[in-house]
Simulated assay, not measured.
Amino acid sequence: MKTTHKAGLSVAGAALAGVLIAHWEGMNLVAKHLPFDPPGVITVCGGITNYDWPWLKAGMTFTKEQCEHELAHVGERYADKVVLCVPSLPEMPPHRQAAIASFAVNLGVGKVCGTSIARDLNAGRIREACDAMVKYVYANGNFMKGLLNRRTDAMWGERPWCLRED
């Protein structure tokens, strides 16, 4: 039995999720609306939004240390919600846990739970679930090369990490 860190991720999965999310999200210390985000979404620390922190307002500033701390735990918070629709998440290989958490942080829990991704994971169709992540490479109707990279990069891509068995 794997030791769980929180409801959704093993200790290893939580650590890997922090690394993967930080790799893709980068680091912005001033909260602002990003052009590819939907209207009204404010982002800071490279991935924390006003959906995570309802009190977040444009112009608020944070230290690098505050952002690193939050990014290290954001994957856990999202995975804790994903586990409600994918109960087997804590028993999956750590790289898969991290990929699913990163995907959920990027697009929201609904893009896991409300799509074929959760249905396929629950049915044991891992390849189909991981492949489905690659469909989500558009923001506001525009193709985003950065999202394609995030999904498919051989070293850091969510799909390759999702497919790993170890």
Rank of each mutant, 00 (worst) to 15 (best):
T3R: 14
T4W: 04
T4P: 03
K6T: 15
K6N: 15
K6P: 04
A7F: 00
A7R: 09
S10D: 08
G13H: 05
A17G: 07
V19N: 13
I21H: 11
H23G: 06
N28M: 08
V30Q: 14
A31S: 02
K32S: 08
P35L: 01
D37M: 02
P39C: 10
G40V: 03
I42D: 05
C45V: 02
G46W: 01
I48C: 05
N50I: 02
N50Y: 04
P54F: 04
K57N: 04
M60W: 00
T63D: 10
E65Q: 13
Q66A: 07
A72K: 08
H73A: 13
H73R: 14
V74C: 07
R77I: 04
A79E: 01
V83Q: 10
L84M: 12
P87Y: 04
S88P: 07
P90T: 09
E91M: 13
M92Y: 13
P93M: 03
P93R: 03
R96C: 14
Q97A: 12
A98V: 03
A99R: 02
A99Q: 03
A104I: 05
L107I: 07
V109G: 10
G110R: 14
V112K: 06
A118Q: 10
A118K: 07
A123W: 01
I126H: 11
C130F: 02
A132K: 06
M133W: 04
K135W: 11
V137G: 13
G141S: 11
G141E: 09
G141I: 06
F143W: 03
M144I: 14
K145I: 08
G146L: 02
G146E: 03
R150C: 12
R150I: 09
D153H: 07
A154G: 09
E158N: 13
R159S: 12
P160H: 12
C162D: 00
L163E: 10
R164K: 15
R164D: 15
E165I: 15
